[in-house]
Protein backbone atom coordinates (compact mmCIF):
# COMPACT_ATOMS: atom_id res chain seq x y z
CA UNK A 1 0.00 0.00 0.00
CA UNK A 2 2.95 2.33 0.62
CA UNK A 3 3.51 3.89 -2.76
CA UNK A 4 6.93 5.39 -3.33
CA UNK A 5 6.67 9.05 -4.16
CA UNK A 6 9.32 11.70 -4.43
CA UNK A 7 7.17 14.71 -3.56
CA UNK A 8 6.65 14.65 0.20
CA UNK A 9 8.06 11.64 1.99
CA UNK A 10 8.11 10.86 5.68
CA UNK A 11 10.39 7.92 6.39
CA UNK A 12 10.83 6.08 9.71
CA UNK A 13 10.02 9.27 11.58
CA UNK A 14 10.43 9.14 15.36
CA UNK A 15 9.61 12.20 17.45
CA UNK A 16 10.27 12.63 21.13
CA UNK A 17 9.72 15.32 23.73
CA UNK A 18 10.89 15.93 27.28
CA UNK A 19 8.43 16.18 30.13
CA UNK A 20 9.54 16.36 33.74
CA UNK A 21 12.21 13.70 34.18
CA UNK A 22 11.08 11.65 31.19
CA UNK A 23 11.66 11.50 27.49
CA UNK A 24 8.45 10.50 25.78
CA UNK A 25 8.21 8.99 22.32
CA UNK A 26 5.24 10.69 20.71
CA UNK A 27 5.64 9.22 17.25
CA UNK A 28 7.39 5.95 16.49
CA UNK A 29 8.80 4.91 13.09
CA UNK A 30 6.10 6.54 11.02
CA UNK A 31 6.36 6.38 7.23
CA UNK A 32 4.04 7.70 4.55
CA UNK A 33 4.27 9.72 1.40
CA UNK A 34 2.18 12.23 -0.42
CA UNK A 35 1.89 12.99 -4.12
CA UNK A 36 1.72 16.47 -5.53
CA UNK A 37 -1.87 17.69 -5.54
CA UNK A 38 -3.03 15.07 -3.08
CA UNK A 39 -5.23 15.77 -0.05
CA UNK A 40 -3.63 13.63 2.61
CA UNK A 41 -5.39 13.28 5.95
CA UNK A 42 -3.66 12.30 9.18
CA UNK A 43 -6.45 10.80 11.24
CA UNK A 44 -6.38 9.47 14.76
CA UNK A 45 -7.44 9.96 18.37
CA UNK A 46 -5.70 12.40 20.71
CA UNK A 47 -2.25 11.20 21.65
CA UNK A 48 -1.53 9.65 18.26
CA UNK A 49 0.97 12.41 17.47
CA UNK A 50 -0.76 13.63 14.32
CA UNK A 51 -0.23 17.32 15.16
CA UNK A 52 3.35 16.59 16.16
CA UNK A 53 4.00 14.97 12.78
CA UNK A 54 2.53 18.03 11.07
CA UNK A 55 4.77 20.34 13.12
CA UNK A 56 7.76 18.21 12.15
CA UNK A 57 6.85 18.56 8.47
CA UNK A 58 6.51 22.29 9.12
CA UNK A 59 10.08 22.20 10.46
CA UNK A 60 9.14 23.37 13.96
CA UNK A 61 10.22 20.11 15.60
CA UNK A 62 13.38 18.23 14.70
CA UNK A 63 13.06 14.46 14.26
CA UNK A 64 14.78 12.21 16.76
CA UNK A 65 15.38 9.82 13.90
CA UNK A 66 14.08 9.29 10.41
CA UNK A 67 13.66 11.94 7.75
CA UNK A 68 11.20 14.17 6.00
CA UNK A 69 11.89 14.96 2.35
CA UNK A 70 10.21 17.48 0.08
CA UNK A 71 11.12 17.27 -3.62
CA UNK A 72 14.12 15.17 -2.70
CA UNK A 73 15.46 17.67 -0.18
CA UNK A 74 15.59 16.95 3.53
CA UNK A 75 13.54 19.38 5.65
CA UNK A 76 15.31 20.79 8.69
CA UNK A 77 13.73 24.16 9.40
CA UNK A 78 10.52 26.10 8.85
CA UNK A 79 10.11 27.83 5.50
CA UNK A 80 7.26 29.40 3.54
CA UNK A 81 7.28 26.49 1.06
CA UNK A 82 5.20 24.69 3.71
CA UNK A 83 2.44 27.08 4.76
CA UNK A 84 0.68 26.24 8.00
CA UNK A 85 -2.89 26.88 9.14
CA UNK A 86 -3.23 26.30 12.87
CA UNK A 87 -6.27 25.42 14.94
CA UNK A 88 -5.86 28.44 17.23
CA UNK A 89 -7.66 31.63 16.28
CA UNK A 90 -4.74 33.70 17.58
CA UNK A 91 -2.62 32.70 14.59
CA UNK A 92 -3.41 36.04 12.91
CA UNK A 93 -1.24 39.01 13.87
CA UNK A 94 -3.70 41.03 15.97
CA UNK A 95 -2.00 44.32 15.15
CA UNK A 96 -2.65 43.95 11.44
CA UNK A 97 -5.94 44.01 9.55
CA UNK A 98 -7.13 40.95 7.63
CA UNK A 99 -5.63 42.45 4.48
CA UNK A 100 -2.52 43.51 6.41
CA UNK A 101 -2.00 39.94 7.58
CA UNK A 102 -2.00 38.63 4.02
CA UNK A 103 0.23 41.48 2.82
CA UNK A 104 2.65 40.79 5.68
CA UNK A 105 2.90 37.13 4.62
CA UNK A 106 3.59 38.09 0.99
CA UNK A 107 6.05 40.91 1.66
CA UNK A 108 8.12 38.90 4.13
CA UNK A 109 8.50 35.88 1.90
CA UNK A 110 9.31 37.39 -1.48
CA UNK A 111 10.50 40.60 -3.07
CA UNK A 112 7.46 42.44 -4.34
CA UNK A 113 6.28 46.05 -4.44
CA UNK A 114 3.83 47.19 -1.79
CA UNK A 115 1.15 47.89 -4.38
CA UNK A 116 1.45 44.52 -6.10
CA UNK A 117 1.36 42.76 -2.73
CA UNK A 118 -1.78 44.70 -1.79
CA UNK A 119 -3.55 43.73 -5.00
CA UNK A 120 -2.55 40.10 -4.64
CA UNK A 121 -3.62 39.99 -0.99
CA UNK A 122 -7.00 41.51 -1.85
CA UNK A 123 -7.48 38.86 -4.55
CA UNK A 124 -6.74 36.07 -2.07
CA UNK A 125 -9.20 37.49 0.47
CA UNK A 126 -11.75 37.62 -2.34
CA UNK A 127 -11.15 33.93 -3.03
CA UNK A 128 -11.98 32.94 0.53
CA UNK A 129 -15.05 35.18 0.46
CA UNK A 130 -13.76 37.99 2.65
CA UNK A 131 -13.20 40.65 -0.01
CA UNK A 132 -15.30 43.19 1.88
CA UNK A 133 -13.76 42.63 5.32
CA UNK A 134 -10.10 43.28 4.57
CA UNK A 135 -10.02 46.44 6.70
CA UNK A 136 -11.12 44.63 9.86
CA UNK A 137 -8.76 43.68 12.66
CA UNK A 138 -8.73 40.00 13.70
CA UNK A 139 -10.65 40.72 16.91
CA UNK A 140 -13.47 42.12 14.79
CA UNK A 141 -13.81 38.85 12.85
CA UNK A 142 -15.68 35.66 13.78
CA UNK A 143 -13.81 32.39 14.31
CA UNK A 144 -14.68 31.14 10.83
CA UNK A 145 -13.62 34.42 9.24
CA UNK A 146 -10.29 34.30 11.07
CA UNK A 147 -9.62 30.80 9.74
CA UNK A 148 -10.50 32.02 6.24
CA UNK A 149 -7.93 34.80 6.55
CA UNK A 150 -5.39 32.20 7.71
CA UNK A 151 -6.18 30.09 4.64
CA UNK A 152 -5.95 33.14 2.35
CA UNK A 153 -2.57 33.91 3.90
CA UNK A 154 -1.39 30.36 3.17
CA UNK A 155 -2.55 30.52 -0.44
CA UNK A 156 -0.71 33.83 -0.76
CA UNK A 157 2.54 32.18 0.29
CA UNK A 158 2.39 30.05 -2.91
CA UNK A 159 3.59 27.11 -0.84
CA UNK A 160 4.38 23.68 -2.25
CA UNK A 161 2.40 22.10 0.55
CA UNK A 162 -0.31 23.50 2.77
CA UNK A 163 -0.32 22.01 6.26
CA UNK A 164 -3.52 22.28 8.27
CA UNK A 165 -3.67 21.37 11.95
CA UNK A 166 -7.35 20.84 12.82
CA UNK A 167 -8.19 24.30 11.48
CA UNK A 168 -11.95 23.83 11.85
CA UNK A 169 -11.98 22.04 15.21
CA UNK A 170 -12.90 25.17 17.21
CA UNK A 171 -15.74 26.19 14.90
CA UNK A 172 -19.44 25.47 15.34
CA UNK A 173 -20.82 22.57 13.29
CA UNK A 174 -22.52 24.72 10.64
CA UNK A 175 -19.51 26.92 10.04
CA UNK A 176 -17.28 23.85 9.97
CA UNK A 177 -19.33 22.32 7.17
CA UNK A 178 -19.21 25.58 5.19
CA UNK A 179 -15.47 25.79 5.67
CA UNK A 180 -14.96 22.21 4.49
CA UNK A 181 -16.91 22.96 1.33
CA UNK A 182 -14.96 26.19 0.84
CA UNK A 183 -11.67 24.36 1.24
CA UNK A 184 -12.65 21.75 -1.35
CA UNK A 185 -13.72 24.56 -3.67
CA UNK A 186 -10.36 26.28 -3.27
CA UNK A 187 -8.56 22.99 -3.84
CA UNK A 188 -10.38 22.31 -7.11
CA UNK A 189 -9.35 25.79 -8.30
CA UNK A 190 -5.68 25.59 -7.31
CA UNK A 191 -4.94 21.86 -6.82
CA UNK A 192 -2.46 22.48 -4.03
CA UNK A 193 -0.99 19.65 -1.98
CA UNK A 194 -2.74 19.43 1.35
CA UNK A 195 -1.76 17.63 4.53
CA UNK A 196 -4.66 17.91 6.92
CA UNK A 197 -4.78 16.74 10.53
CA UNK A 198 -8.10 15.83 12.12
CA UNK A 199 -9.65 13.55 14.70
CA UNK A 200 -13.00 13.46 12.92
CA UNK A 201 -13.68 10.53 10.62
CA UNK A 202 -16.36 12.52 8.82
CA UNK A 203 -14.03 15.41 8.15
CA UNK A 204 -11.38 12.99 6.92
CA UNK A 205 -13.81 11.35 4.48
CA UNK A 206 -15.16 14.66 3.20
CA UNK A 207 -11.79 16.34 2.66
CA UNK A 208 -9.32 13.57 1.99
CA UNK A 209 -8.18 11.82 -1.14
CA UNK A 210 -6.12 9.52 1.06
CA UNK A 211 -6.32 8.88 4.78
CA UNK A 212 -3.46 7.76 7.00
CA UNK A 213 -4.90 6.32 10.23
CA UNK A 214 -2.74 6.50 13.34
CA UNK A 215 -2.86 4.74 16.70
CA UNK A 216 -1.92 6.46 19.97
CA UNK A 217 0.86 6.04 22.56
CA UNK A 218 3.10 6.11 20.64
CA UNK A 219 1.83 7.34 17.30
CA UNK A 220 2.08 4.64 14.63
CA UNK A 221 0.54 4.22 11.20
CA UNK A 222 -2.18 1.59 11.24
CA UNK A 223 -3.36 1.70 7.67
CA UNK A 224 -3.67 3.94 4.62
CA UNK A 225 -7.02 4.26 2.94
CA UNK A 226 -7.72 5.64 -0.51
CA UNK A 227 -10.84 7.74 -0.88
CA UNK A 228 -12.07 7.86 -4.45
CA UNK A 229 -14.83 10.41 -4.45
CA UNK A 230 -14.15 14.09 -4.20
CA UNK A 231 -16.98 16.52 -3.97
CA UNK A 232 -19.11 18.19 -1.37
CA UNK A 233 -21.69 15.45 -1.86
CA UNK A 234 -19.28 13.01 -0.20
CA UNK A 235 -21.71 12.43 2.64
CA UNK A 236 -24.33 11.05 0.23
CA UNK A 237 -21.91 8.79 -1.62
CA UNK A 238 -22.83 5.11 -1.22
CA UNK A 239 -19.25 4.27 -0.41
CA UNK A 240 -19.22 6.78 2.46
CA UNK A 241 -20.92 4.67 5.10
CA UNK A 242 -18.90 1.60 4.19
CA UNK A 243 -15.62 3.49 4.41
CA UNK A 244 -16.63 5.12 7.68
CA UNK A 245 -17.42 1.70 9.15
CA UNK A 246 -14.10 0.38 8.00
CA UNK A 247 -12.13 3.26 9.52
CA UNK A 248 -14.04 2.94 12.78
CA UNK A 249 -13.18 -0.73 12.97
CA UNK A 250 -9.51 0.08 12.28
CA UNK A 251 -9.31 2.82 14.89
CA UNK A 252 -11.34 1.01 17.53
CA UNK A 253 -9.77 -2.37 16.99
CA UNK A 254 -7.91 -2.44 20.28
CA UNK A 255 -9.64 0.32 22.19
CA UNK A 256 -13.33 -0.29 22.33
CA UNK A 257 -13.90 2.63 24.64
CA UNK A 258 -11.96 5.16 22.65
CA UNK A 259 -14.02 8.20 21.95
CA UNK A 260 -12.97 10.08 18.87
Amino acid sequence: MNKVSDFLTVRNLTLQYKTGAYRVTAVNEVSFSCDSGERLILLGPSGCGKSTILKAIGGFILPHSGEIMLNGKQLTKPAPDRAVVFQEFDQLLPWKTALGNVIFAIRNTRAISRKAAEEEAAAHLQRVGLGALGHRYPHELSGGQKQRVAIARCLALRAEVILMDEPFASLDALTRQQMQEKLLGLWSEARFTLVFVTHSIDEALILGSRIVTLSPHPGRVIEEIKVRHCDDLARRHPEYAALKGRIESILFKDQLEYVI
Binding site: G58, K77, P78, A79, P80, F86, F104, A105
Partner: peptide, 28 residues
Protein backbone atom coordinates in the same frame (compact mmCIF):
# COMPACT_ATOMS: atom_id res chain seq x y z
CA UNK B 1 1.94 32.42 22.04
CA UNK B 2 3.65 29.42 20.44
CA UNK B 3 1.25 29.74 17.51
CA UNK B 4 2.32 33.32 16.70
CA UNK B 5 5.96 32.31 17.02
CA UNK B 6 5.44 29.45 14.59
CA UNK B 7 3.66 31.77 12.16
CA UNK B 8 6.70 34.07 12.22
CA UNK B 9 9.10 31.16 11.75
CA UNK B 10 6.88 29.81 8.97
CA UNK B 11 7.63 33.00 7.04
CA UNK B 12 11.31 32.35 7.62
CA UNK B 13 11.68 35.29 10.04
CA UNK B 14 14.76 34.98 12.25
CA UNK B 15 16.92 37.02 14.61
CA UNK B 16 16.23 40.74 14.81
CA UNK B 17 13.55 40.62 12.12
CA UNK B 18 11.67 38.06 14.21
CA UNK B 19 12.06 40.26 17.30
CA UNK B 20 10.93 43.48 15.64
CA UNK B 21 8.20 42.09 13.37
CA UNK B 22 6.68 39.47 15.69
CA UNK B 23 7.83 39.62 19.32
CA UNK B 24 7.73 43.39 19.93
CA UNK B 25 4.29 44.05 18.44
CA UNK B 26 2.88 40.87 20.01
CA UNK B 27 4.26 41.93 23.41
CA UNK B 28 3.11 45.54 23.03
Amino acid sequence: SQTLRMVGRNYGLKGLRFVFLILIPAAL
